[in-house]
Amino acid sequence: MMHPGQSTLAGGPTPPVQRFLLAVVPVAAVSIAGSLVTTPNIPTWYATLAKPGFTPPNWLFAPVWTTLYILMAYAIWRILSLPKEQPGRAAAVTAFFVQLALNSLWSFAFFGAHSPLAGLVVIAALIVAILATIKAFWPLDRFAALLLWPYLAWVGYATALNGAIWHLNG
Rank of each mutant, 00 (worst) to 15 (best):
L126T: 00
L71C: 07
G170R: 03
Q6A: 15
T94Y: 10
A125F: 07
S107L: 02
G53M: 07
V27W: 04
N41D: 14
A29T: 13
K84P: 00
N103G: 12
M1E: 13
F137D: 10
N103C: 12
H167L: 13
G156F: 02
A62N: 12
P13G: 15
F61Y: 02
V17S: 06
A90G: 04
V122E: 04
N58P: 05
L117A: 15
L131R: 13
D141K: 11
L102I: 00
G88E: 10
T94V: 14
L21F: 11
A10C: 05
Q86P: 08
N103A: 09
A62W: 05
T8A: 15
I130Y: 01
V17C: 12
P15W: 06
Y151H: 11
A90F: 04
A118Y: 10
S104T: 15
A33H: 03
P57D: 15
G34R: 08
A124I: 14
K135W: 14
T38C: 00
M1L: 15
A164I: 04
P139H: 11
P16Q: 03
T66I: 10
T67S: 14
L21V: 13
A132G: 02
R89A: 08
A90Q: 05
A73K: 02
G53K: 09
S115Q: 02
A132M: 12
Y157E: 07
A33L: 08
W59Y: 13
L168I: 03
P56C: 03
L131S: 14
V93C: 01
W138V: 09
V64A: 12
S81I: 00
F61V: 06
P87R: 09
L140H: 03
P116V: 03
H3V: 14
K51I: 05
T44R: 10
E85V: 07
F137C: 00
A90Y: 01
W154H: 01
L71F: 10
A101G: 11
G12T: 01
L102H: 00
P139N: 01
P57M: 09
V37L: 08
F61C: 10
I32C: 13
L71S: 10
